[in-house]
Write a protein that binds this DNA or RNA. Structure first.
Lengths: 156, 156
DNA sequence: GCGCTGCTTGACGCTAACGTAAACGTCAAT
DNA sequence: ATTGACGTTTACGTTAGCGTCAAGCAGCGC
């Protein structure tokens, strides 16, 4: 039975039933996202994940689709240069109670904060990309000027 | 004498002459970019900066406009989540010899590498921004539904 | 029962990126 | 000459984010 690399479906020992959606072991998630189980447990220590426990004495971790999503968001945050603390704040924010009006307003304020940070990063990104474009164009021009003898058209 | 916060012009002890362009002391740069002198010296240790030395025994650092630019690029790289090593590689790359054709080609290859990394980051950024938009819209909808009694129009 | 594999919890180690403190030089003003 | 303000080196301390053992439990096939 070939296991799908991107969507491991088998819960753990059961064939394909269970009550809820798909679940994952720690090594499955580790393989899927190309990180170590150690890293995943560390994220749990930092409050980024809270998997269910299963087996004798509830030793073994079992991750739901929701936990998988949190991990995915965590890794995306890391790629954006956020610290684990910042990521935890964002994750907590997204799951904070939003029942009352003041809660909603604070939520909006936090969202605006994050948006601002992201937009600043966007500017940095675009600036960096612009510089690369700049260098690349200049470089191609140099190449074209250095070796035009190989082509069949264009000259001095 | 009010010193300009964004463009400190006075070299150090001279009024406004010197042979080259504007120069900066370490504390001037530190204030301008809101970092500590310690950080700037650390970047130098890591090979990101190489300021001129001036004064008795050449003890004191003096930064040219070019060094200031390198520092600026360094900080931008940091905001993008790059390590100092990665930043140094990029800076070195931008000042590497590009005389021969193979050099130019390797340069182009490196540029393509960096561009790819940046474009991936761009995707992450846009995804994150999209999620914020999503949450914000939903949040505003909730607010509108929770307190329509304050408005003068619209109702069930 | 026995070893294999996979998962678990410590606990210590390690790199990156500075912070912080000590101890000294120096230039200008007093 | 002394006092600051600023700058310097050296060195140890700190935080984040895991890596790397070490030692043990739990099913599973034989």
């Amino acid at each position: 039975m070939p296991s799908s690399a991107t969507q491991p479906p088998t819960p753990i020992g059961q064939p394909a039933n269970a009550t809820a959606g798909t679940t994952y072991t720690i090594t499955e998630l580790a393989r899927e996202f190309d990180i170590t189980p150690r890293a995943i447990r560390f994220y749990e220590d930092q409050g980024l994940l809270s998997p269910d426990r299963v087996g004798a004495g509830g030793r073994q971790r079992l991750y739901s689709g929701r936990e998988r999503t949190r991990l995915k968001l965590t890794l995306r945050g890391k790629r954006l240069g956020l610290t684990l603390n910042e990521i935890r704040e964002i994750l907590d924010l997204y799951e904070s109670p939003r029942d009352t009006v003041p809660q909603l307003e604070r939520f909006l304020a936090s969202l605006a904060q994050h948006r601002q940070a992201l937009e600043r990063q966007m500017e940095d990104l675009q600036a960096q990309l612009a510089e690369i474009d700049q260098h690349e164009r200049q470089c191609r021009a140099l190449l074209a000027a250095a070796a035009p003898e190989h082509e069949g058209a264009a000259g001095a």
